[in-house]
Every structure is written in C-alpha cells, then in structure tokens.
Design a protein around this nucleic acid. Structure first.
Lengths: 113, 113
DNA sequence: ATGGGATATGTCGGATCTGACATAAGCTCA
DNA sequence: TGAGCTTATGTCAGATCCGACATATCCCAT
C-alpha cells in the first residue's frame, strides 16, 4: 500500500506525469537568481532607510565595503546565506524575507520588502 | 534635509534609538539556522511526497546521497543556496519557499510547506 | 538472524565564497 | 577645480561548501 504510489511514480521515469513537476536545471537557477536580486534590493533599501553608508554597514556585519557593494549589486559571488544573514542583522524579520523571496519585493510605496 | 535624519542617526552611535532595530550577531544566526532547518524539513517532505529515495533525488540534483542526507538532517555544512536550489528543482515555487522561510512550515495536515 | 535497501556520518580534494585591500568612478559642495 | 565622501570593480589568500567515496546504522521482509 505504501509502496503502490511510489512504484507507479518510479515506473514513469525521469519526469513524473505530464504536468511538469520538476524544474529544469537552468530554470531553477533563474528563479534562484531572481530571489537573490530581490534580496539585494531589500538590503540596499534597508541600509538606506537607516541612513547608513556601505562602510558603516560593513562594520556592523564584520565585513567590508566592497562586499556590501557586491551584495547590493547582485554580484554572483554573493551567497544567499550572506544576503539573508545581513538582512537579519539589519532587523529584517522572517516575514520580511519571505516577502522578498516571494518576489513581492515592492509594495505600493515603491519600497522593497 | 536629506541629511538631517542621517546625521541624527549617526550621532546615536551603535544602536539606533531605544527600540532594538538591529539583531545581535548570535541572534541573527539563530534565526538563520531556524530557517535552514525549516527548508530541510520541506525538502524531505517534498522528496517523500514524490516517492523518491535519497539516491534518486541525488541523481536528479547531480549530487550524492550523502549530501542529500546532510541537507535533510540540517548539517551545518549545507548552504541555504543548496537547499533552495534543490527545492526549486523539486518543483517548489517561490511562495512555497517563502512559507517555509517564514516558519509557517507545517499546515493543518502536518505537512511542511 | 540475516540480507538488502535506505539513511546517516566522517573524510577529503577541488570548487566556490568571503573579507580585505587597492583602485576607479561618481557626487556634492566650496 | 578639486577635496572628500560614497559606491563599484578587480584581485587574492584563506575559509567554507560541494560532490564523492567509504562505512556505519537502521528498518523491514524473509
């Protein structure tokens, strides 16, 4: 019983069913990149809202101005972990991050989440 | 004028105002770890929903069984990028990820987002 | 019990990310 | 103009993460 569904699915091979359930490799990265860009925008927005320069923020993060710049410009060398932990340090809540990740980055005031 | 707020904030020094606007370093990682654990649970849930073994999933991800195990057990060597891109490949949407990150991981059916 | 599939844990070389530094480019104000 | 502040870009050594492999543990069916 527990196995019936499983075996059925396995027989189907690579892609399960006709509805595409799995994203292709490239499509998945595209979405990931979008998410990171959205987080980048949120970071810049949040930093500016607090009137901090990149250097000042870098100090709080125990990082450097150049890395902050890379975070905000969406440099590919920046991980999601770094973006998220930086946002958290700037006081973003899980809900704020969720909004940003969801792509509802900009609200009616033109602010990033 | 654009500067007045900024200068006022800067004068305050490390923490702006009496309301805590910035998270401490350790508090921020705690939240980050929580988020990653939530993503881990989502991954396991999603894999099982498709009736895949870790080996089968690893193949789709071009990864290995041991890394999948580490992802699902919340091993500290696993990045958020890896968790998120794996979930995306398994067909999770941005909204699914947002829910998981927000900590609303489990719904009324006991399912992870 | 035991054999086999599934999952967990430890380790390692290579890949990627990080902070730091240097330097360039943009802005604003005197 | 140019001094001073801010942000962007390139580079690099060290830190961290990744896939892979080996091995251990767990869980069922037999």
């Amino acid at each position: 019983m527990r196995k019936s569904r499983r075996e059925r699915l396995e027989r189907e091979g690579w892609v399960v069913g006709s509805v595409k359930e799995f994203l292709g490799l490239s499509e998945a990265d595209a979405v990931l990149i979008e998410m990171k860009l959205s987080l980048s925008r949120s970071l810049r927005e949040r930093r500016r809202r607090y009137g901090l320069s990149q250097i000042e923020l870098a100090r709080r993060l125990h990082s450097s101005q150049s890395r902050v710049a890379k975070m905000e410009t969406g440099d590919p060398s920046v991980s999601m972990d770094l973006l998220v932990s930086s946002l958290l340090l700037l006081g973003a809540t899980s809900s704020d991050l969720a909004k940003s990740i969801r792509g509802e980055g900009r609200n009616k005031n033109g602010r990033a989440a």
